[in-house]
Write a protein that binds this DNA or RNA. Structure first.
Lengths: 209, 209
DNA sequence: CTCTGAACATACCGCGTAGTATGTGCCGCG
DNA sequence: CGCGGCACATACTACGCGGTATGTTCAGAG
């Protein structure tokens, strides 16, 4: 009657991380109920405290092993593309298309955690900071490469532009939570789209195509 | 021995609102402890529940009577100025200067509440939504006026640009909480500054001065 | 002067929570 | 074959929290 295979510590741990991620996305970290995580994951409290020493430790693990890859997978394609603006616009359209989902209701897990936990817990703050710094640095590198291969204007401060773009994206996703219609969010993405277009060098009509 | 004047219901109520605002800024709404608010305001629990039916009612009142004016006072000057871009840049520098304060640690009360409460409480969501819609509409009007009097480019989607700017500001303030240095925040504001400059019409060198 | 009710003050309650103490089964090693 | 310890499972505890019940005081109407 019991599950065919038990004693799968890796799988149990992974289940906990994923279900905790979902619950934290819905309720925030402090609002996340361990009982809810246990119920959705089908794990008992004993198992949880065997794998993680505390709720905080579980939260840290979620940041390190779920949130971080989740964020990096999002912006990594931009860095790999040869035309940064094209790649960014593509990602921008992606944001527009995925808007019907939970994203508009629950926002971005990364942004949520920064807002909730950074001021009150150093462990969260430093972890989230590193994710942000890496992201920022990645975009800066992308812009520099774009400037080198002529797909981005030369007279652009890469550090400022990168921070500005990241801020606008996270800000838009955050503010969208206050709306029940995607109107504001769509407008913000349109604004971002136009801004990204303006980053192309003026002399050249198009880089190619 | 007792305070010279007691029984000042208006003052008591105001004290509660202000102290609740501070506590909510520090700990979020759910994390805000009524006991902490009572201690900092010097009011007892009986008095609190005489003025407000519940913690939620207190939170709504804080949004309506503290957060809303706080937000509107910030962007109202932009609408009143004749050159929108100048006014926006001024506000932008203001953001840069006030960065040393609590702003970087605790963020924007408005943005914080949206992120925390919108997904889980309709009462908060609708109130915050109205503040955001008014803000958005205000900036749109400002841009339109700028386009009419020649201080803003004609080929600009006011709705998109307004949402984009608001998003970037709130996003920057939110993300700044993850940093202990103002580096990222300053970069984002610099990016915003450059973007605002780009909104000026190209043909005219300067509107005046 | 009296008396009513607004404006508090104090003591208490119930609930959900993170965390713990202790028990159990099973796999692998010797 | 025995047995130690990993991977769980269950029952319980402590505590902070929002909320309430009840008592007290004072200002003002009549």
């Amino acid at each position: 009657m019991k599950p065919a295979v038990r004693r799968q510590p890796d799988r149990t741990r992974q289940m906990l991380l994923e279900c905790a991620f979902e619950e934290i996305l819905r309720s925030g970290f402090r609002g996340a109920s361990l009982d809810a995580i246990l119920e959705s994951s089908g794990v008992t409290k004993g198992a949880l405290y065997h794998h993680f020493g505390s709720k905080t430790a579980l939260g840290y693990a979620v940041v390190d092993e779920v949130v971080r890859p989740w964020v990096e997978d999002a912006w990594r394609p931009v860095l790999d593309a040869d035309d940064v603006v094209d790649a960014a616009l593509k990602l921008c359209d992606e944001l527009q298309r995925q808007r019907t989902e939970q994203a508009l209701e629950y926002g971005c897990p990364f942004n949520n955690l920064i807002n909730e936990m950074s001021p009150i817990d150093e462990g969260f703050r430093t972890r989230l900071q590193h994710i942000l710094v890496d992201w920022h640095q990645g975009i800066i590198e992308g812009i520099r490469r774009g400037q080198r291969n002529g797909s981005v204007r030369d007279d652009l401060d890469p550090e400022a532009a990168a921070a500005f773009v990241i801020s606008s994206v996270e800000g838009a996703v955050g503010l969208a939570k206050a709306q029940q219609s995607p109107q504001f969010y769509e407008a913000a993405v349109r604004g971002l789209h136009a801004y990204l277009e303006s980053l192309r060098p003026p002399q050249r009509r198009r880089s190619r195509k």
